[in-house]
Design a binder for these strands. Structure first.
Lengths: 210, 210
DNA sequence: TAGATTGTTAATCGATTAACAATC
DNA sequence: TAGATTGTTAATCGATTAACAATC
């Protein structure tokens, strides 16, 4: 979990700065960012220094130029095509979400499912049968996939994606899959997020000083 | 992000051990767990030591007893009641998911929405209007909430939850909200997870040694 | 016993923080 | 100028790892 924290903070900086920009702000100090996000100002400056974001001792950092830099770091200049495997409840939610992802320079270009009842090749985001998956990835040069299949299908689907040289997988199944040299896998386990929240609250309630 | 990593690993140990148990395994070595999850065996033993899980130099660790201990640590002996605010696509997905959460000792007991069309007080998990929220929390002694409302409603909903003394919030809106002394907030930002995955892949592709 | 694994200590590593000189 | 903030260095902190004695 080395320097993933730094990129996580970078994404948080981006969100905050867009909000400030909407409020009409032009410049911001590291101290304000620190307060808003609950980190230290040293860390904000250190992060900015590492990502090559420069400020001035006069007016702090210019929001527009930080955002330009961050978007550049994130490669938002070009839209990233993503496919989604498993058009269940969760998968459908992501397909419908659409706009939000577009803001991040991300576009879900197709969904795939084994259930023939789910297929809809004419939809805004077309849903194809699994048999089309390999060809679609190759024909459209897809590098990223979101996996929202049931746990029982998880391993098999991910093996197919690896075989087709998908480079990045966002895995929502409860099976934690390790990254390989070829494919980076980001496991998101919503049950675990909830379990951890509950643990942290229970832990806090145990503390004597209330 | 101090010792949250340790509890995250604990949840991963739990999942793996249940799978091993299904396979008929009774005992396991720290080295096997380490290989399966991509961590070092020292770290597995250190984690176990810290959580009070003991093994033997003969046959390693007994799976059943690790699981009992982990479930005890996670407080799974008693079911945790959770409410969900915002019955949109994502919220519905979680409501339908049900079973998965039950396995974790978590039960979503009600949903809430401002849209009168969403209200369904007779459903398996009843959906109530927002006006019922405060009373429901008090009458049922609710400590945890999942927030899946649109970003525009996010701040307002979370303020209400805080006012009603909700102790833990799992926040899926893109607004990162800080925890307070009273309320722990776990922010899950799916756009960010995807953006980070893409960043990591692009970063890897940049490396000279391929 | 010989071999292998746990449990634990000390060393390492890296991230965060504190502090302050440089700068506007 | 005086005051305030950045950029950066050194100190701190804590988590991970390596190593090995104790143990089965």
């Amino acid at each position: 979990m080395d320097r993933q924290d730094r990129i996580k903070r970078l994404l948080n900086y981006k969100n905050l700065l867009y909000q400030l920009q909407n409020l009409g702000f032009v410049k911001v100090f590291s101290d304000n960012i620190a307060d808003a996000l609950g980190v230290s100002s040293s860390l904000v400056r250190k992060d900015f220094a590492i990502f090559g974001i420069a400020g001035s001792q006069k007016g702090g950092y210019e929001i527009a130029s930080i955002l330009a830099k961050i978007n550049n770091i994130l490669g938002k200049n070009q839209v990233q095509k993503v496919i989604l495997i498993g058009v269940g409840r969760l998968g459908t939610a992501f397909l419908q979400y659409g706009k939000g992802f577009t803001d991040e320079g991300i576009k879900i270009v197709a969904g795939f499912d084994i259930d023939p009842g789910k297929i809809d090749e004419k939809a805004a985001v077309p849903i194809y049968p699994m048999s089309n998956l390999a060809d679609f990835i190759r024909d459209n040069d897809i590098k990223f996939a979101i996996v929202t299949v049931p746990e029982s299908a998880s391993r098999q689907v991910i093996d197919i994606l690896k075989a087709e040289k998908i480079q990045g997988i966002l895995n929502f199944t409860s099976l934690k899959i390790k990254s390989t040299d070829e494919t980076i896998i980001n496991n998101v386990n919503i049950e675990h997020e909830l379990a951890r929240l509950i643990y942290n609250v229970n832990q806090k309630n145990k503390e004597p000083h209330d």
